[in-house]
Amino acid sequence: MSDTKDVTTTPQADSGSDAAGVPIVLEQVSKRYPSAKSAAVDEISMEIPAGEIVILVGPSGCGKTTTMRMINRLIEPTSGKIRIDGEDVLSLDDVKLRRKIGYVIQQIGLFPHLSITQNVSLVPRMLKWDKRRINDRVDEMLMLVGLEPSEFRDRYPRQLSGGQQQRVGVARALAADPPVMLMDEPFGAVDPINRARLQDEFLSVQEKLRKTIVFVTHDFDEAIKMGDRIAVLDQGAKIAQYAAPEEILSGPANDFVEGFVGQGATLKRLQLERLETLDLRPVSAADKTTSRVPINATLHGVLDEMIATAQESLVVVKDDKPIGSVSLDDVLARVRELRAEAEAKEGA
């Protein structure tokens, strides 16, 4: 993969030269512990398409983390096959395998005795990249996650805030340009405001990089936000439903999934709809005084703003310039459309 890549001359993140994701296939993968009666993971089979974020979500103890950790063989499967880009991971050297898979955990696990540069460059150094390439890569990665290299390169982890540390964690996982990333509740330890920011930033990074990402969380709202697909797992990592977030919200496969989705599925559904999908009305002179929403807001956010300001119409802005307006009727019309779509799908 990345070994053929030349030194990037620009320090900017260059999506063209980074390795895009590869598909992962699990075939009847099981993990049994000798002491336990039932399997921790019971013959899970799933396909994870290249370049997508697949969320494993479920109650604690359902085997989601175990499933993820079997992909880079931090846990050895008892039976079954795991293929990354067609290659059986069980046939590879486990240490070398892990250097090609990014790994981010909730506790971050930055090494406190190593500087940020040393932390980020760990895997490239193990892969024996040359010095200049490593230095460029560290700067590129720090910039990618929104940390100014000249300011952060030589700091130590304890001199960083929790959010900054988690950014470094992501930069470190991406440093050797792995096609696959495993993320275990990566934003679980940061406060809600920073979490939302980190999630947004990560999504925009992923938009450029298109890695294949297996993302474990117990938070269904995070699953909806981050996932291209969501696998809802029950005990023994049994897949209760594996589908796009919209589909799970509008048509939960069974009571377990419905219970997990929780209250307010319709509102959550609106978190997935962007304002961009609506036809905007022209801005009228009367709108000048009303509140503003950015064009990339979700319908959930639009509704929230309308309720918060008790206004039925909002000005839509792009780069702080008004480009149109949206009314409550527009949003409700979209909700009716979505419902019709969902019913049509169920009928089919």
Binding site: N72, L74, V95, K96, L97, R98, R99, K100, I101, Y103, I105, Q107, I108, G109, L110, F111, L122, V123, M126, R172, A173, L182
Partner: peptide, 18 residues
């Protein structure tokens, strides 16, 4: 040594010796 540190190290592809 914090087990999370070891998990991260192992997950990044460090050998036992390293």
């Amino acid at each position: 040594v914090d087990p999370a540190m070891l998990d991260a190290a192992r997950g990044m592809g460090m050998s036992r010796f390293r």
